[in-house]
Computed example of a mutant assay.
Amino acid sequence: MSLKKKLGLGIASAAMGISLIGGGTFAYFNDVETTNNTFAAGTLDLSIDPSTIITATNIKPGDRMSRTFKLKNTGSLDISKVLIKTDYSVVNKTGAPANVDDLGKHIRVNFLKNEDKNGVIQPEENIIVSTTLADLKGQMPDAVENKIWAWFGWGDEASGIAAGTQDELYVQFEFVDNNADQNEFQGDTLKLEWKFDAKQTAGTNR
C-alpha cells in the first residue's frame, strides 16, 4: 500500500472517531432519582367580632359610649401588627345648612386599649389611642402592640396575634361637651370607618 493511501486511511479513521465522539455513542452506567417537593403558602386572616363596633343614636354632648370587640387571627400565620386607619364622613340633617365646624373634632376616643397586652405593673402605658377622630385620621396606630413588653413578662403578651388566638379590645367614645354652642350638630350623623390592616411577621430560615 502506498504512503498516500496509508495517510488517506489514517485521516478517514480519525474523522470517523471524531464523528463517533460527537454523536455520543459511548456507553455508560446511569441511575436517576427524583424528589417531589412542595411549597405551600400560609394564610393571613384577620376577623373582627362584632363587625360593627358601635351604633349609637340620639347622642348629645357629654355622652360616653364604651364597647368591646375582638381581633381574631383565624389564619395559619402569626400577625405582627394590626394598623388602624380612620376615616369618617358627616351627613347633615336634611335641610340644615352645612356645618362650619367638624363633628369629628368633637367625638373623642377617650381610650382604645388592648386588654391582652395590658401589663400588671403599668396597665395604662398600653393605651393605643386617646384623641379625637379628626386627629386620628392622620395616624395609623398598631392595635396589637405591647409598648412595655419585657418587663419580666408579668401579666401581658408580646406584640402581635399568634395564629389561632385573639385579642380583646376596649374602646370608649365621647361626644365632648365644650361648654359652647354646638347646635349646628343637631340631627347630624357621623359615619366612622375603621380599617384594620394585618401585617405578617418577618420571614425566617426554614
Rank of each mutant, 00 (worst) to 15 (best):
A56L: 09
G10T: 11
P61W: 04
A202F: 03
F152K: 09
A96L: 08
A150W: 07
K191G: 05
A98L: 06
T94I: 11
S89H: 06
G42Y: 05
R206I: 10
E125H: 08
Q182S: 15
F175A: 12
T68A: 11
D156Q: 10
F69D: 14
N30H: 15
T165Q: 12
K93F: 05
M65L: 12
A198R: 01
S66Q: 15
K81S: 08
S76L: 06
W154N: 09
I161K: 00
A180T: 12
N179H: 11
G187V: 04
I21P: 04
E174R: 06
V90Q: 05
W194Q: 02
G155D: 02
A56I: 10
N146I: 00
I18C: 13
M1Y: 02
L103T: 00
F29P: 07
V91F: 02
A143L: 13
N37Y: 09
D102K: 03
K195V: 08
F69M: 13
K81R: 12
T132W: 05
G187M: 08
E193I: 11
P61D: 14
D177Q: 09
A96Q: 14
S13V: 14
G10H: 06
G153R: 08
G155T: 02
G62Y: 06
E124Y: 07
M65R: 12
D167W: 02
D167T: 06
K81P: 01
V32M: 14
D78K: 03
M65C: 07
K195H: 07
K81G: 03
D197K: 12
L71M: 09
T68E: 12
K4L: 06
T25L: 14
G42H: 10
N110W: 03
L77W: 02
G104N: 00
V90E: 04
T52M: 10
F26M: 05
G104I: 01
I84D: 00
A56G: 05
Q182T: 13
K105D: 15
D101N: 15
D45W: 03
A150K: 12
Q166E: 14
N58A: 13
D188L: 08
L190H: 03
P50C: 09
A27T: 15
G10K: 05
T57G: 03
Y28K: 13
K117G: 01
A56Q: 13
N99C: 11
L169A: 01
D31I: 11
A41E: 11
A56R: 11
M140R: 15
L3E: 05
N126E: 15
T68S: 07
T38H: 07
Y170I: 01
D167Q: 06
D31M: 08
D156R: 00
E157V: 07
N37F: 07
G95E: 13
I48A: 03
E193S: 10
E33T: 15
E174N: 13
S159P: 03
D116S: 14
T189C: 05
G138P: 02
G160P: 01
H106T: 08
L83V: 09
K4R: 10
F175V: 10
I53W: 08
K4W: 04
P50M: 09
Y28I: 11
D102R: 02
D102C: 07
R67K: 15
N118S: 15
V91R: 14
A163H: 04
T57S: 12
T204W: 02
N114I: 01
D49E: 14
G203T: 11
Q122W: 09
F26Y: 10
G10W: 09
L20T: 14
D135V: 03
T68K: 10
N114F: 01
N146K: 03
F29H: 11
I148H: 02
